[in-house]
């Protein structure tokens, strides 16, 4: 199982902050995962319509959408950060 996390505006658009999923084997990258999620529910479609406004972290480290996810236990999606 993989834990998917959503934060801030992405969480609001998806409709929840966390879920556990068995990801299909054909999903190799974060981009594949986004495409698969978008086909499942309109909340994901809304959240991931503009990927330039989305950042991804794989196992709590900033990553790119073309990075591999097969060995990941935790994948998070969120907007560009605004701390400090």
């Amino acid at each position: 199982m993989t834990t998917l996390l959503y934060f801030a505006a992405i969480r609001e658009k998806v409709g929840h902050g966390q879920e556990e999923m068995k990801l299909p084997d054909h999903l190799a990258t974060a981009r594949d995962l986004v495409g698969w999620l978008r086909s499942r529910h309109e909340g994901y479609e809304y959240a991931f319509a503009d990927l330039s406004a989305v950042r991804v972290a794989i196992d709590q480290a900033f990553a790119g959408f073309d990075d591999p996810i097969r060995s990941a236990t935790e994948i998070a999606f969120f907007p560009p950060v605004t701390g400090g």
Partner: peptide, 11 residues
């Protein structure tokens, strides 16, 4: 660096 490299979000 904290402002652009740590996962915080403000509303």
């Amino acid at each position: 660096w904290l402002k652009v490299k740590a996962p915080f979000w403000k509303r």
